[in-house]
Simulated scan of single mutants.
Amino acid sequence: MTTDRITRERGAPTMSRPPVPPFTTEEDARKKVQAAEDAWNTRDPQRVALAYTPDSVWRNRGDFITGREEIIEFLTRKWEREQDYALRKELWGFRENRMAVRFHYEWNDAAGQWWRSYGNELWEFDAEGLMRRREASINDIRIDEADRRIFGPRPEEERGRSIPLA
């Protein structure tokens, strides 16, 4: 569940996405990562985009994306192509307003071929806890449907557990 809050900065309302930097405890950093995983598993580009600053900068594989509108357009195309998308993220490290995250997700294409995508992300947050920079490196491997490991959002009993690489 998102715990957004509205704050006032220079008289104008701004959205806050707790926990906010500086990240000083592993618990807060893990909460941030789990919130991102939960949002991405909705496959709702509008909802996901709200976690990013209006001028957020992304590098996603070879795509360079700037701002929420481009994020929404990118995610809309992504989830049209990557059907039955289901994701797991894991905290790798954190300091002040930055995090390193590893992840994998599974999806199938229009031909019914299943894929597992592995990657690493570097995140940078503003003072309100919105992500202002995201850099993602991702590799895809074909898998058989019988080899799938992810079936929808993470069940409650699996939260906080490490994700296997192989």
Rank of each mutant, 00 (worst) to 15 (best):
E69C: 06
E157D: 14
M1C: 10
R134L: 06
G62R: 13
E82G: 11
K89I: 05
M99Y: 01
E145Q: 02
E96S: 15
V48Q: 08
P21F: 10
W115E: 13
R95I: 08
D44E: 08
S117D: 15
L130M: 09
R8D: 08
R102Q: 10
S16F: 07
E90V: 02
E9K: 12
E128K: 13
F103R: 03
A100F: 03
R68V: 08
A100V: 03
Y52T: 04
S117C: 09
N97I: 05
K31I: 01
R8N: 01
R95E: 14
R159C: 10
T24A: 11
T24H: 13
T2I: 10
A29I: 02
F64N: 06
R88Y: 02
A39T: 15
S162W: 10
Y105Q: 14
Q83D: 10
P19R: 13
E73H: 15
S137M: 05
R30I: 04
R142W: 09
A127D: 11
D63T: 15
E124A: 00
W92F: 03
S56F: 13
D84P: 01
R98I: 02
A110C: 01
P153H: 13
I72T: 11
F125K: 04
S137F: 08
T66L: 11
W79P: 01
I143C: 01
R134C: 04
Q83N: 11
M15Q: 14
M131E: 09
T53D: 09
D140G: 03
G11I: 00
E145F: 12
R134Q: 05
M99P: 01
Q46A: 06
D144R: 04
Y85C: 06
R148C: 12
R102F: 06
I71D: 07
E121P: 00
R148A: 14
V57G: 08
E135T: 12
R59V: 15
G129W: 06
T3N: 11
M99W: 04
T66A: 13
E96P: 11
R134V: 08
W115F: 03
M15E: 09
W58L: 11
R95Q: 09
W40P: 10
A86R: 04
E80W: 02
T3C: 03
M99D: 04
A166E: 08
D63Y: 15
T25K: 06
K78D: 12
E96F: 14
I141K: 07
A49D: 14
G129F: 09
R116V: 03
I143M: 02
T76F: 05
A12T: 02
R134D: 14
Q46T: 14
E26P: 14
G112I: 00
A110Q: 05
T42F: 05
T14K: 08
P45E: 01
W123V: 00
W79K: 11
P45S: 14
V101E: 08
A35F: 00
D28K: 01
P153Q: 04
L87S: 06
F23S: 05
R61K: 15
R47F: 10
R68A: 15
R43Y: 05
